[in-house]
């Protein structure tokens, strides 16, 4: 049960073996994706034909590597653009929400808070279709009454950004609120006593305090946006972001170039994840020790 209790060697070993198996289960799919990025074969499957970098840098027709694959590179560009927009928007709105919920009282606050949590319980596909229907209604309405064609409200980058922003903002709101809750308001009051305006006090004292949470939330947003599939699938137009392009290729059957992209994706998200953990960890030190 716990180390302080006597227990048979057999059950301890059995337990450790189970944990080992579990971690093999966790790691196996990621490891094979990575390893097969270097397989010298046209398909990401057995047998192993030897080591190659072709799937990264290949230029031949049948063996185009990621770095020479225009479609993949373009979709990475779209994903990056979407993710940056979503991150900036949702960190801004999340910070506003944090101040609103932590510092202000007003009628209907609890109801608004529940609504702000709602996106967490809405399945991504449903969020996608509801936004698709709504933007389409607006676009049709405007077209019928004013004869204007609002192209940005048709499936495409803009509504993909809106769709991802819709649920990612809940995450930023929660993360930044949690940090703001720990802020000692007397610091801000001190600044006000020393003659700072309300905005100056927030800008020089409170926002720097919130910075780790904002960066952490921003990284999480970026990754969630970059890797989002369900909501994006319903809203996407002709400019496919990376996950949609990869999905299409996966269905058709693809060369190990897909593994190469996946491997790069894993490395980048791993690094970003570690950064966000360390940025967030800094804030915990003064609390716990």
């Amino acid at each position: 049960m716990i180390p302080s209790l006597p227990q048979s060697k057999f059950s301890t070993r059995l337990y450790a073996a189970y944990i080992t198996l579990f971690f093999i289960y966790l790691a196996a799919p990621l490891v094979v994706v990575g390893v097969f990025a270097f397989n010298d074969s046209l398909f990401p499957s057995m047998p192993w034909n030897g080591f190659t970098f072709d799937w990264f840098i290949g230029t031949e027709d049948s063996r185009i590597g990621v770095f020479n694959d225009g479609q993949l590179l373009e979709s990475i560009g779209y994903s990056g653009f979407i993710a940056i927009c979503v991150t900036l928007l949702s960190v801004f709105v999340g910070t506003c929400n944090a101040f609103l919920f932590e510092r202000h009282t007003f009628r209907g606050k609890n109801i608004l808070y529940i609504f702000a949590l709602m996106p967490l319980v809405i399945p991504g596909v449903i969020l996608g279709i509801s936004i698709l229907i709504f933007t389409n209604s607006i676009a049709n309405g405007v077209e019928d009454s004013f004869g204007l064609d609002l192209d940005f409200l048709r499936p495409g980058l803009f509504i993909v950004i809106m769709g991802q922003f819709a649920f990612v903002t809940t995450i930023t709101t929660l993360v930044i609120s949690a940090r703001l809750r720990k802020f000692d308001t007397s610091l801000e009051e001190a600044a006000l006593n020393l003659g700072a305006t309300k905005w100056e006090a927030v800008k020089t004292i409170t926002l720097p305090f919130l910075k780790p949470a904002m960066i952490g939330a921003g990284i999480v947003c970026f990754l969630m946006s970059f890797e989002n599939f369900n909501t994006t699938l319903m809203l996407v137009g002709s400019d496919s972001p990376l996950t949609i392009t990869m999905f299409d290729r996966l269905k058709q059957g693809s060369t190990p170039a897909l593994n190469a992209v996946s491997l790069m994706l894993m490395v980048v998200s791993g690094v970003l994840a570690l950064i966000s953990v360390f940025v967030q960890r800094d804030k915990k030190v003064p609390d716990s020790e």
Partner: peptide, 27 residues
């Protein structure tokens, strides 16, 4: 941490991994 890290990776990549493991010509 080791429990958390796989989930920073896109669901698409994880599913792709299972396909490579389990398909007819798989690992």
């Amino acid at each position: 941490m080791m429990c958390l890290i796989p989930f920073w990776v896109s669901e698409l990549v994880r599913t792709f991994g299972w396909m490579i493991l389990l398909r007819e010509s798989g690992v």
